[in-house]
Amino acid sequence: MSRYAVTLLKGERTDDKAVIGYDPPLRTFFLQGFETDDDFGTPEIWLGTLLEEFPTLEGIVEEARRMGYELRDLDHADMIALLSEAGHVYEPSLAEKLGLIW
């Protein structure tokens, strides 16, 4: 699983500790930002938690924008690394093969 630091903006607020990455077992891009103070440390925005939810980098960025967030500071090299990781063929997990995850 890759994780790259990015800056996430929403209105006047900024989170310079947000992360974007690719999760091979779920075969999805993910984005987390704006940590909350709840007991579990759940981020305010947490996209990419479901199997193949965001198979493209463009798709997750568009969803974040639809929710009012803007992504900044993802440099070219990190973007290429993310796309390269997502371009591999990942076999279904045992849980998927047994029908426990769909």
Results as ranks from 00 to 15, higher is better:
A86G: 08
G99C: 08
A64V: 01
L31V: 02
L57K: 05
G41F: 07
T36S: 14
I20S: 01
M79F: 00
F29K: 02
R72H: 14
H76L: 11
L71R: 05
L57Q: 04
R27N: 05
A95R: 10
R3D: 12
D78M: 05
E96I: 03
E70C: 10
A86E: 05
G87V: 02
T14F: 04
T14C: 12
D75V: 13
A18N: 06
D15Q: 09
I80V: 15
G41E: 09
A86F: 07
K97E: 14
M1E: 11
E44W: 00
L31G: 02
M79R: 15
Y4S: 10
I101L: 14
L9Q: 13
I80A: 13
E63C: 09
L31E: 03
S93H: 04
M67T: 03
E52F: 04
A77R: 10
P43F: 08
G59P: 01
F29R: 02
Q32P: 00
V89R: 12
Y22K: 07
D37P: 02
A95W: 11
T56V: 08
F30W: 14
E96N: 04
L50F: 09
S2C: 12
Y22S: 06
G41Q: 09
L83M: 15
R72K: 15
F54A: 04
F29G: 01
L9A: 12
W46T: 00
G11P: 12
L9R: 15
D23I: 00
L71C: 09
I20H: 03
A77H: 07
K97L: 15
G87T: 04
R3S: 15
D16V: 01
W102R: 14
L83A: 11
A5G: 11
D39Y: 06
L26G: 07
L98A: 12
Q32L: 07
F54H: 06
F54C: 03
G99D: 08
E91H: 09
P55H: 06
R65T: 11
W46Y: 13
M79V: 05
E12S: 14
T56K: 09
L94Y: 10
Y69L: 07
R13P: 06
P43E: 06
M67A: 13
Y90M: 01
F40V: 08
L100I: 08
E44P: 02
L8M: 12
G21A: 08
I80D: 12
V89N: 09
L98T: 03
F34L: 03
A77N: 07
L8P: 05
S2M: 14
G48D: 01
M1A: 15
M67F: 11
P55V: 04
E44V: 02
G99A: 10
I45V: 15
E12N: 14
Q32F: 07
R65S: 14
D39H: 04
L9S: 09
I45T: 03
M67V: 03
D15Y: 10
T14Q: 15
Y4Q: 13
G99V: 05
G87W: 02
F34K: 01
L98W: 10
T28N: 02
E96S: 05
G59R: 03
E35M: 10
Y90C: 01
K17G: 09
E52S: 13
K10R: 15
A81M: 10
L94D: 14
L8D: 10
A95Y: 09
